[in-house]
Design a binder for these strands. Sequence first.
DNA 1: GTTCACATGTAACAGGTTACATGATTGG
DNA 2: CCAATCATGTAACCTGTTACATGTGAAC
Lengths: 180, 180
Amino acid sequence: MNIRTLCLGILFFEEATGYEINKLASEGRFSHFIEASYGSIYPALTKLMDDGYVTVREERQVGKPARKVYAITEKGRKALLDGLYDEPGADIFKSEFLFVCLYSEFLEPNYLSEMLDRRVEVLEEKFQMLHELSERCDHPASQFAIGYGKALNRAAIEFIKENREKLEARHERKTVQAAH
Amino acid sequence: MNIRTLCLGILFFEEATGYEINKLASEGRFSHFIEASYGSIYPALTKLMDDGYVTVREERQVGKPARKVYAITEKGRKALLDGLYDEPGADIFKSEFLFVCLYSEFLEPNYLSEMLDRRVEVLEEKFQMLHELSERCDHPASQFAIGYGKALNRAAIEFIKENREKLEARHERKTVQAAH
DNA sequence: GTTCACATGTAACAGGTTACATGATTGG
DNA sequence: CCAATCATGTAACCTGTTACATGTGAAC
């Protein structure tokens, strides 16, 4: 899914500026299943304007630059809803963490343990974040999406806690070692 | 993590051709947390050669094109292991499925139910695939990675089964509808 | 006969990231 | 005083995808 569709999807629920869309996509209630950055959001918004899917309203502010508040149009609403009927692609999961884990037996034991500690910590923070989001949300579909994120997060935390010793035990010591 | 590192990581465990690396990354025991395609693998292998991280051996075959079997060098081994000490970036999860779910109340009820059915099916197939992989694997670290994938998969399946009715019930019927 | 598995590779293109440029206000 | 938040935008760059090009043998 491209950033244009993402912007349209967010604007479907509420008016927003590019800055706010970035926040929603990187910290807010879309953040656990979507990626976006300024460099892609602003051009996407411009394109959406050109195509008549959104409108802008400029709000002057004292001291700060004017904010450009985008709102979806009927045409944009219809385009989004129509697009929903294309079978969604498979979820994408990429994990450098798991990649590193593959070579755990070659890592310094302390480093491995610290990495696992940090990972659990980060996942717990994320879980907490999602939990707070879900408490401040009364839209059932959004709750579902947040709940899904929480479920995966919890599963990851529990899995690491229950299985980390299998990595830390390092059953057979390998001879190949990196010099450090 | 780029494709070069991925190729190096696979070659760390075993010699392989570009074709085989593609299989491992798209169906094999790396497939649930890594993405790669021919268009990126072959050039990555060439680059790895240029940098002295791998060597090639050409195996002529009757009827089929010669296969180029790549093998990691000491330099490559060291480079991979050294790279492991860079803190792994956060896991990336992208889901068009969850995005579509956000607008479930605007979808035709039948379509929504079918989409959820299909999604559970796909996830169950994936789980089965991972399960079979883990049975044919005796490397503890790989087992950990596969187990992690299975845990997340199971969590997703259970969450959908337990919560789909909340989407399908459509608490408040919205008036905005796409024409179909 | 047609599709699948094997096998390598390139080129055009899409898509997005990173860093940069700019600048005021608020809170610690 | 410094960092963070608010706020917009561009340009160079990187990375990877898709589609194409080519060809055999086996299975169905």
